[in-house]
Amino acid sequence: MSSATSEQETATPAEELDHGRGTRVALAVVRIGIGLLWIQSAGWKTPPNFGQDSGTGLFKYTSYAVEYPVFPPFSWLIENLVLPNFALFGYLTLLLEATIGAFLLVGLATRFWAVLGIIQTVAIALSVLNAPDEWPWSYYLMIAAHLVILAAAAGRTAGLDGVLRPRWRQSSGRVAGLLLRAS
């Protein structure tokens, strides 16, 4: 008998993750907390010019990508594409962040919205990471929290994914299949 085989026979099985009540409550708290983070951040993105006329608000933070570059190609994109069309970009940002917050709050298609949350956090980080008075770990922690929501499918506990997945599983439709994956 080879040594590898004998090791396999004697190895203890990997420890299971804790799926208890405490874990489920903590996951729901993380999901709802991150949802509220996006909801609150939709509050200060004020249309119609999003701070462009006064150099404040969303315009100020977006301009940081050019003033304090983190990743030069991203800065170029902001300078040449986003800032010249800022009102459109402002509305898109407001809609995206409000929607991420709304869906994470109620736990619907949670994994999909967690992915969008990660993408949006990376975009924000690429704008402000080198700006004065920023704490880079805010963004690293946001990404980490979204990863937890994504990996644990946090909408299935105290969220609407948990209510709707049995129904989606019964359906043979394409949309139901996509929603199963997104939740």
């Binding site: 949802g35 996006w38 909801i39 609150q40 951040s41 939709a42 509050g43 200060w44 993105k45 004020t46 407001l94 962040e97 409000a98 929607t99 917050g101 709304a102 869906f103 709050l105 109620v106 619907l108 609407l160």
Partner: peptide, 15 residues
């Protein structure tokens, strides 16, 4: 309200 009110109401509405 503001954008946060809109987002919260949307969450409840969608839910």
């Amino acid at each position: 309200g503001n954008g946060s009110s809109a987002a919260f109401l949307a969450g409840l509405g969608i839910g």
